[in-house]
Design a protein around this nucleic acid. Structure first.
Lengths: 118, 118
DNA sequence: TTAATAGTTCAATGGCAGTTGAATCATTTG
DNA sequence: CAAATGATTCAACTGCCATTGAACTATTAA
């Protein structure tokens, strides 16, 4: 579960989420990502490193001109994440209330409350 | 997409993720959550408020003894989140590389790179 | 070999947010 | 009424992390 939280934290950053989205669309080099997002190359590198650390992104270097570096989504990591997430947040998992506290004799006597929100 | 990032950010906090997990198991009052997680009641309240703000959690007040407050997972919000997440991170969405930059004439000539990680 | 290019690493900054303890609110009980 | 209970709100603190600008590495081009 801590592992899930860690991956969610990585994806919860808006710019990283956009990077992942662009990588899924096929965009891959640092410069293109930076252009698309209006971000500096070093910042792109920073986020890509974090995405690599959780295994969501892979790296390749161009065989002809080694200055170019291409990033891509790691399919298996993504698939596993989607699977774990889907299992964890499956609405069917929600169980009925079984309170161990509260007054005896009021098992299911509840009234909807909107006041506390206002 | 910003909306997705916001919900992910809420769920990326380990203690909140545990609270969500407990709520799915049927645990619901502040005190029980606090006992289960070893956290002070005010901190539980804090995280529950954040979960409420994104619509993931609902609130009810005990009809017999109004001092007790019960929290529960909002099924529709959870279902929508699971759906959006599943669609966004679907491995089938990953497209082929189509680089607009890089040297001409090296379309698919790449070599795997492990050095950069070390 | 010198300059240019693509990218990374480093140090410093600033803001957000989780945590803490005390105070407060609302409700029920004696 | 006063005391107790369940929970929330408030103010202050602290640590983490995205951002920034500059320096640095590696590779290719002139």
């Amino acid at each position: 579960m801590d592992n899930l939280a860690r991956q969610l934290k990585v994806l919860a950053e808006p710019n990283r989420l956009r990077i992942v989205d662009l990588l899924m669309e096929g965009v891959q080099c640092n410069c293109e990502l930076g252009d698309a997002l209006g971000m500096a190359p070093n910042l792109i590198s920073h986020h890509l490193r974090i995405l690599r650390e959780v295994g969501l992104v892979d790296v390749e270097r161009d065989a002809v001109d080694a200055r170019w570096v291409y990033y891509s989504i790691n399919r298996s990591t993504l698939a596993e994440l989607a699977q774990v997430f889907g299992a964890f947040f499956d609405p069917a998992r929600i169980k009925e209330r079984h309170p161990a506290c509260g007054p005896q004799g009021s098992p299911i006597q509840l009234e909807p409350m909107t006041a506390i929100i206002a």
